[in-house]
Nucleic acid binder design. Structure first.
Length: 419
RNA sequence: GGAGGGAUACCUAAGUGGCCAACGGGGGUGGACUGUAAAUCCACUGGCUUCGCCUUCAGAGGUUCGAAUCCUCUUCCCUCCA
């Protein structure tokens, strides 16, 4: 099986030839991927300091490419980030300054390294600011700009969407810059394939078109290809990777490995098999087998999913820890190591601390009013027993094994230890 | 530069002098039912020293017993004309 087929098998690409034409600019790419080693790239957005689950699909695609012996390039849009992709956005995005982008890039690379092997040039990470910022406007217009037709660009879905609210010239240029990226990579790194989410279709096509035109002018037949995959939504239609707290970050500084594990443990039933295919490297026979589980049994598949995905991002040890913690907590057993803890000093505790304050300090609620409501709704637990009164004072008597287990609802825990 | 429209809580969007901490929807949080799922139903969703008090309706002033609502100025956004 070549990578293309693997991607089809795992659910990145459709097996339906009709649908596939909307995912692939030219079906020949399938053959090419089987025949020779190619260089391919995906662009990443430098607006956040960490990648999140929404980016994970892209990362997995690159990882599959590398495993198949191809060379993936991750482009961080240091240059295009200064412009802002209007695709799918109804409003103009906030522009970032350069220092910020640089810092974000650095931390994103660390995260990518969990999935890709950057040694010996087996994978590359490049910043498009390196070739975009030195561009000379007049030269650029003459060499690149003349290949673009405004008439054509105006028909782009992303542009139409903005006809009502307005689209700045800056943003209008975004796809040209992205096309130029592709051209640059094609010429300097022999990159022939760009991949991305389906919202990138227009931008990717702009790139393949540009390369074709520029090459044709030189009398060359060199071609470039594009592959897109659907934007991921959960079975209930929500965007992947967003939770009440915001994005599901890959960085353990922004989201603990325990919470990351929990995110995957709690996916909807219908998504389990799909996610196993997309976000793990488990053999598909096993994936299909797990996907067949029904009713309560599907929880086993969810555990596998959560474990495998956490392992990829945070390492095996963290995954094990998260799994154990979760099992202990939810099976009602002892204490867990991976849940957040707060320190309270002994004097404070022996004097007695109002329960409201304790929950607030443990960060289980943003305000004391929130704690009040939580208790009134019967969702607050102290050492597994429901807190009945908002006036409860907690003192040394509540210690069990030198700690106090607080719980908000069924899934949020914190422990209090003496500090 | 001219004319007009707008800015309300996480998002969306009502409210145009007191009944407004502000309708509704979304989202979120809790509860019930469950399988740490989905669907459904119920409650909650500014803060606090919580039967009361305090700070909110872009910002600053003003009118009034009383303003998110009226007036003035400022900032920002949008539409149309140039």
């Amino acid at each position: 099986m070549n990578v293309f087929e693997i991607l089809q098998d795992r659910g990145f690409l459709s097996t339906d030839s009709e649908e596939l034409t909307r995912q692939v600019t030219d079906p020949k790419i399938k053959e090419i991927l089987g025949k020779k080693k190619v260089t391919c790239y995906i662009g990443f957005d430098p607006t956040a300091s960490s990648l999140h689950v929404g980016n994970l699909l892209q990362v997995m695609v690159l990882a599959h490419m590398q495993r198949a012996g191809h060379r993936p390039i991750a482009i961080v849009g240091g240059g295009t980030g200064l412009v802002g992709d209007p695709s799918g956005k109804s409003e103009m995005r906030q522009l970032l300054n350069e220092e910020r982008i640089q810092a974000n890039m650095d931390s994103q690379k660390k995260q990518l390294a969990h999935f890709l092997d950057f040694s010996e040039g087996k994978a590359l990470m490049l910043n498009n600011a390196d070739w975009l910022t030195p561009l000379n406007y007049i030269e650029f217009l003459r060499d690149i700009g003349r290949h673009f037709s405004i008439n054509h660009m105006l028909t782009a879905e992303s542009v139409k969407l903005r006809m009502e609210t307005g689209l700045s010239f800056l943003e209008f240029n975004y796809s040209i810059l992205q096309a130029y990226d592709f051209l640059h990579l094609s010429q300097n790194y022999d990159c022939i394939l760009q991949m991305g989410g389906s919202d990138q279709w227009g931008n990717i096509c702009a790139g393949t078109d540009l390369i074709r035109r520029v090459e044709a002018e030189k009398g060359s037949k060199k071609k470039a290809y594009g592959i897109t995959y659907p934007l991921l939504t959960t079975a209930s239609g929500a965007k992947m990777g967003k939770t009440e707290k915001g994005a599901v970050w890959l960085s353990d500084e922004l989201l603990s490995s325990y919470e990351y594990y929990q995110f995957w443990r709690n996916v909807e039933d219908q998504d389990v098999q799909k996610f196993l295919g997309l976000f793990t490297f488990l053999p598909m026979e096993e994936v299909r087998c797990l996907g067949k589980l029904e009713g309560k049994d599907i929880n086993q598949a969810k555990e596998v999913l959560a474990f495998e995905v956490t392992k990829l991002n945070h390492g095996e040890e963290a995954a094990k820890k998260a799994q154990e913690s979760a099992k202990k907590l939810f099976s009602g057993g002892g204490q867990a190591g991976a849940i957040a803890s707060v320190e309270i000093n002994r004097e404070d505790l022996s004097a007695g601390i109002p329960i409201i304050e304790l929950f607030h300090r443990a960060k289980l609620a943003k305000s004391k009013s929130e704690v009040r409501r939580l208790i009134q709704n019967g969702g607050a637990y102290l050492n597994r027993e429901r807190v009945e009164s908002i006036d409860l004072q907690v003192n040394l008597d509540s210690l069990e094994n030198d700690e106090i287990l607080l719980q908000a609802g069924k899934k949020r825990f914190a422990r209090v230890v003496l500090g």
